[in-house]
Design a protein around this nucleic acid. Structure first.
Lengths: 143, 143
DNA sequence: TATTGTTATACTCTATAACTATA
DNA sequence: TATAGTTATAGAGTATAACAATA
C-alpha cells in the first residue's frame, strides 16, 4: 500500500491561500449578482474604462478566453446599457469597448462593494504584507 | 477629480497571489483537457474515492454549486466510465458516487500531472512556507 | 412536512471552425 | 496573406422552480 507523504509546509500554505481565494470568489459572485452581472461580465466591467477604449482582443486576453466569446459578453453588456462599441480610429477592423456612464456607476459600485483585496488580506499588518511580497518574490526567483 | 490612493502592500500582496492562482488555474485547465475532463469534472474527480462513497449533496458542497448541477456532472462522469452511482445503505433517497478503477487511474494521473501545489509554492523554502502560514493565521485572527 | 436527487427551463460561458471586412 | 471581430455550432456549467420518492 502507498503511504501518503506527510503534508509539507508548502502544501499547507497553498491550501490556506486556496481557501482565501475560494472565499473571495464567493464574494465576487454574490457582489456581481447584486449588480445584475454575470461572472464574466463583472470581470469585464472592471477592465473597461469610460474614456479609454479597450479593443475586443485586449478584453479577450484579460478574460483569458477566446476572442469569439468576447462578442457575446460585449453584446450583453451593451444590451444592459453598460458598455458601447466604438470604431477604432485608425484600423477599421478593430472594435473597441467603453463603459457608459451607467456602466461606470455599476463598476464603481461593484468595486466599492468588493474592496481592493479579500478581507483577510486587508486585515494584514503592513509588515506581514511586505514579508509576504518578499516570500513570493523569492519563490518566483527560485521557481 | 478623485485621486487613486497609493497601492497598499496588502493590495500588492493580493495581486501577486492572484497571479499565482491564475497560473495554477491555467495549468489545471490544461491538465484536465489532457485527461479528457471538463473543468468541473476534474474538480469532482479529485473529490471522489474508489471505496469511500460520496453523496451527491456532499459533492455539490465541494464544488460549491447547486445540487441540480451535480446530476449532470455525475451523468457525464458515469457516461465516461469514470464513476458510478451507488445506493445509500440506509437512506433510499440518497445516491452516492464512487470512482471506477478507470476513474481512479485518471484521477491519479491528473493529480500527479498537477502536483501538490503550484510550482511557485513548491519552490518556496521551508522557512518561507512556515512564515507564510503564520502570516495568514495572524491575518485570519485579525479579520 | 422536510429532504434528496432529478427534471425542465433558460441563460451564460467555452472552444473550434468558417466567414467578413479590412489590412 | 494575415488579422480583428463575428457567426455558427455544440457542449458544459449555472440557478431556479417544480417534482418524485423517501424520510
Amino acid at each position: 500500500m502507498a503511504m501518503d507523504a506527510a503534508v509539507s509546509a508548502q502544501q499547507q500554505a497553498w491550501k490556506l491561500v486556496l481557501e482565501v481565494f475560494l472565499e473571495q470568489r464567493s464574494r465576487m459572485l454574490s457582489a456581481a449578482q447584486e449588480f445584475g452581472l454575470a461572472p464574466q461580465q463583472a470581470f469585464a466591467i472592471v477592465r473597461l474604462k469610460v474614456d479609454e477604449p479597450t479593443t475586443m482582443g485586449e478584453l479577450a486576453q484579460a478574460l483569458r478566453c477566446d476572442n469569439s466569446n468576447v462578442t457575446g459578453i460585449a453584446d450583453r453588456l451593451e444590451a444592459a446599457g453598460l458598455a458601447e462599441r466604438r470604431p477604432h480610429p485608425s484600423d477599421r477592423r478593430v472594435k473597441t469597448l467603453v463603459l457608459t456612464e451607467r456602466g461606470e456607476a455599476v463598476r464603481r459600485g461593484y468595486q466599492d462593494r468588493l474592496g481592493h483585496a479579500p478581507p483577510v488580506f486587508e486585515a494584514m499588518s503592513d509588515e506581514d504584507a511586505v514579508a509576504l511580497i518578499e516570500i513570493l518574490d523569492r519563490a518566483a526567483s527560485a521557481a
